[in-house]
Structure formats: C-alpha cells, structure tokens
C-alpha cells in the first residue's frame, strides 16, 4: 500500500512538474510573442526617466502638460466665444543639445486638441502636403479657399534654452522653455508662460 501510495505521489509530482513545464514553456508562444535572446520589455511611458541629464521623455511630458494647462486657462482660450484657430510655429532650440522641438509642439497640440477648446491649422512645415492634397483633389485652386488656410486667430511660438555647469564632481543643467501666444495681425503677445527644469548628476567617488 505504502509503495503504491509512494508511486502515485511520485507520478503526480512528475505530472505536475511536466504540466508546469509545458505551461511555462508554451505560455509565451501561445499569445504570439516573438522574443530574442536579449532582455527587451515594455515599460510605462509615463515613468520618470533619469538615464542621464540630457533632455528626455520626462522633460517633454512635463513641459507639454504644464504649458497646455496654462494655455487652456488663459482667457484667450477659456473665454473665447468659439474655439480659436491656432497655428503652431517653430519653437527655437537655443540649447547645446540636439532637441527635436517639433516633439514638444506636437505633444502640446495633441493635448490641446483633446480638450476641444481650440482648432488647429496645419503647421507651415506641413502646408506643402496640404497644398499637394488640394491640387490632387482640385484642378484649380480658388483664392478664397487659400485664404481659409491663412486665416489664423493666433500663432504659438517659443524657445528652449539651457545653462549647463560642469565640474569634476557634478553636472548641473537648467532648461527654460518659453511659449507665447501671438496675435498675427497686431503682433501682440497675448499669453506667455515658461517651464523650468533643473537636473543634477553627481559623479561617483569610486568606480571602474
């Protein structure tokens, strides 16, 4: 009896192990995952990124969030009779880093559009494609239709600046991102705000 019981226990244990092995082994491919030898995984896009002190995804997200909230709260948008038409112009990069400032304006535009409080006209950079599409659909472009393309209520411009100080022990970088809402007819600056970011990196005392 004891021997039989032992055999059954052993068989159950082996079966359990096999089942676990099969489950763990087949778990991946059954959901269609293709995995290489390296360690690649998905992360949370909103996680704070501090790989180094260079401009990164967290800076982009913080800037876009802060500027969008500020712009939406301004009376030119919040108290507008109807959603104004805005065109995003260039945000100039005056830093010592190759920052894609288009990523900043793109993110702000997405967030502003989601709010439903503004309307956007195509960027000047994208106008060529708009014209190409129009030419494709219309053999002759009418003047009044062209006027609609230029009929902007406001434009948004800005700059990104940075100050970096480095010693053997510490590297400190300060970013100042400034955006302005400008009336293209009067050139009046209706709204402006800034986002400041400071990052410091200390050098380890001992290392390989």
């Amino acid at each position: 009896m004891n021997k039989n019981r032992k055999n059954i226990s052993l068989t159950l244990l082996v079966m359990l192990c096999l089942a676990l092995l099969v489950m763990s082994g087949c778990g991946g491919p059954s959901v269609g995952r293709v995995q290489g030898a390296g360690d690649t995984h998905y992360g949370n896009a909103d996680e704070v990124e501090t790989v180094n002190s260079a401009w990164g995804s967290t800076d982009l997200q913080m800037t876009a969030e802060s500027m969008t909230q500020s712009l939406l709260a301004s009376r030119w948008i919040a108290k507008a009779y109807e959603p104004p038409k805005i065109r995003l112009r260039e945000v100039r990069n005056l830093t010592a880093e190759h920052i894609d400032t288009k990523a900043i304006t793109d993110k702000i535009r997405v967030q502003l559009l989601r709010s439903g409080q503004v309307r956007f006209l195509a960027d000047t950079a994208n106008l060529d494609e708009v014209f190409a599409e129009r030419e494709f659909s219309e053999a002759v472009t009418r003047r009044d239709v062209n006027k609609l393309l230029a009929d902007t209520d406001y434009i948004v411009t800005g700059t990104v600046r940075s100050i970096r100080k480095t010693t053997k022990e510490v590297a400190d970088v300060y970013y100042q991102i400034t955006l302005e809402l400008v009336d293209p007819q009067s050139a009046e600056i209706l709204w402006a705000d800034e986002k400041e970011i400071r990052k410091s990196t200390t050098t380890p005392k001992i290392g390989w």
Binding site: N52, T166, K168, E169, A171, T201, T203, P204, K205, I206, G207, W208
Partner: peptide, 10 residues
C-alpha cells in the same frame, strides 16, 4: 569618460 568616477580604477 567624462562621467567616470573621481577615483577610477581603470
């Protein structure tokens, strides 16, 4: 290289 530790064994 610039970010290496102050006392760097290498």
């Amino acid at each position: 290289y610039e970010r290496r530790a102050i006392i760097n064994m290498r």
